[in-house]
Structure formats: structure tokens, C-alpha cells
């Protein structure tokens, strides 16, 4: 059985190897979960980052 790869063979050398732009690929193939998170965030109203659960107020280090 013959397949296309046996028939279609190049008879010349490509002068320059194609460069793959990885960052472009990454940009076009966004992780859907990450994309979702970003959309969730942009939909939040009145939202603010918040990480600290200990201090209610802080006004610099005590001198």
C-alpha cells in the first residue's frame, strides 16, 4: 500500500528553517480556565484585591 508520504517527496533543500513563534502560539491558545478566571474578574463590580485576613488597619511600621 502506498501513502502520500511515499509519493510527495521534496527534491530540494529549504534555504531557511521556519521559525516557530512560541509566544504567538501561547497567545492564541489561551488556557480556557485562565481565560475564564480573567473574565470572572473583569465582571466583578466594586471588587478589589484582598489577601490579608489579620489586620484591619495599617499605617506603616511603628518607629
Amino acid at each position: 500500500m502506498t501513502n502520500n508520504n511515499d509519493i510527495l517527496k521534496g527534491n530540494y533543500q529549504v534555504p531557511k528553517k521556519a521559525q516557530v513563534n512560541q509566544s504567538e502560539i501561547n497567545r492564541n491558545n489561551k488556557d480556557p480556565k485562565e481565560d475564564f478566571k480573567q473574565k470572572v474578574l473583569s465582571s466583578l463590580g466594586g471588587s478589589m484585591v484582598y489577601m490579608d485576613r489579620d489586620k484591619l488597619i495599617w499605617d506603616g511600621d511603628k518607629k
Partner: peptide, 21 residues
């Protein structure tokens, strides 16, 4: 980030819990 904000403007920092309320 809180420390960086305080360095720019040395004014009191209030915890927001994420919302203006």
C-alpha cells in the same frame, strides 16, 4: 503591595475585604 502603596503615599491603609461596603 500594601507596603509599596504606603511608600508612595504614607497615609493609613484600610482593609477592604474586597468591597466598598
Amino acid at each position: 503591595l500594601t507596603r509599596k502603596l504606603h511608600a508612595i503615599n504614607p497615609i493609613p491603609c484600610l482593609n477592604t475585604g474586597g468591597t466598598v461596603g
